[in-house]
Structures are given as C-alpha cells and as structure tokens.
Amino acid sequence: MDCKEFREVLDLYADGELSPDAASAARLHLAECAPCRAAERELLRLRGALKLAVSRHEPPPQLVSAVRDISRPWWRRLMCDAGARDEPRDARPFWRKRIALPAPVFALLLVALVGFGLLSARLRTAQPPRPAVRSEPAPPTPATSPPRDASSFDFARFDQGGRASLYKERR
C-alpha cells in the first residue's frame, strides 16, 4: 500500500471498517510512513476534539424528569413527585412524614368529605327508625280486638326484645 492508497482508505481504517487484510496492509504502511502517521493522528485528534465539544452539554433536569415520566404510570409519577419535593431524603418514620398532595386532588377530597358528611346527616334526620317487624307479615288480628296498650304490645318483636325492654323501662 502506498501513500495515495492509504489516504483513500484512512477513514475506513480509523473507523475500523477495513477488511482484516486491508487493515494489516495499512498498518504496515503506517509503520514506515511518517506523513501518513501524522495524517492519522490529525484525524484522531479531530475526533477527540469533536467528542469533547459535544460532551459539554448536559440534559436539563426538567427534560430528564419529563422523559422518565414517559414510561411511568400516573400513580408512580405522583409518588416520585412527592419524593422529589422531600429531598434531601430524611430518615423519619413513615407516620411522621409529610404527604404532598396536588391542590386539585386535595380540593376534590375535601369536597367529597364535606358532601358525604352533609348527605349522611340529612339521611339521618329524614328517616326515623322504623320497627324491624315491618318486613314480617303482620298476624291477622280480629276486627273486634280491643285497642292496643303498652301492656298488650308484643315487645319481643323488636330486635329480640332488647330495645323493647328499654322502651318498657322508660314507660
């Protein structure tokens, strides 16, 4: 291989793309040719300088977290966000740790809680306790039966008589 041939394959040689035979011929030529060695050295220097120049840039943190979030489900994202806000990580036990909630989620929880409280309070006032015997068919009563009084009422029909005995005592 002479200088002209070597210069034509210098890129391939530097990039490791030459066949083994051609690469060994190039190495033989390099061993005996100082100008071609200088040309190869320059090419390698150019490569090194290029690598150095490109490596100056670091991806910004917001890009890193945005790309990381791509493959994360939403609940993991929430957990990671909360964790990131706690940094530096502390060694507090879990019952002493702060929980970070996004404002909309917090508002939603608050509305749900208040709504549930109001609803349950309203239901409690609107529906007075009804006797449990309502579901059972009432026994046929004779038309001439005397009007009921407290003594003739079958208190045992109320939840096995427990609450009924209380009523009885009060009377």
Partner: peptide, 8 residues
C-alpha cells in the same frame, strides 16, 4: 471519497 492529501 476525497483523499486526505493535505492533512500533514
């Protein structure tokens, strides 16, 4: 391919 004749 342009050979590197002047890379010395």
């Amino acid at each position: 391919v342009e050979p590197y004749y002047d890379w010395e």
